[in-house]
C-alpha cells in the first residue's frame, strides 16, 4: 500500500512540475527579458511541489513499515 501511495504521490508531483515547466517556458518565450526572474521562481515553485510529493512518499513508505 505504501509503495502504491508513494507512486501516486510521484505521479502528482510529476504533473505539477510539468505544469510549472510549461508555464515557465511559455512566459519565457513571451518575455525573454524576464528569464532570470522566471527561472528562479520556477525552481522555487517546483521545489515546493516536490516537497509536498516527498512528504507523501515518506509518509507512504512509513505506512508500509
Amino acid at each position: 500500500m505504501g509503495a502504491i501511495g508513494a507512486g501516486i504521490a510521484a505521479l502528482g508531483a510529476g504533473i505539477g512540475v510539468g505544469l510549472i515547466g510549461r508555464g515557465a517556458l511559455e512566459s519565457m518565450a513571451r518575455q525573454p527579458e524576464a528569464i532570470g526572474d522566471i527561472r528562479s521562481n520556477m525552481i522555487l515553485t517546483a521545489a515546493l511541489v516536490e516537497g509536498a510529493a516527498l512528504f507523501a512518499i515518506v509518509v507512504g513508505l512509513l505506512q508500509g513499515a
Partner: peptide
C-alpha cells in the same frame, strides 16, 4: 522547515 528537511534528505 520540515519540508526543507525532507526535501534535501529524500533527494
Amino acid at each position: 522547515p520540515f519540508s526543507l528537511m525532507i526535501r534535501l534528505f529524500a533527494n
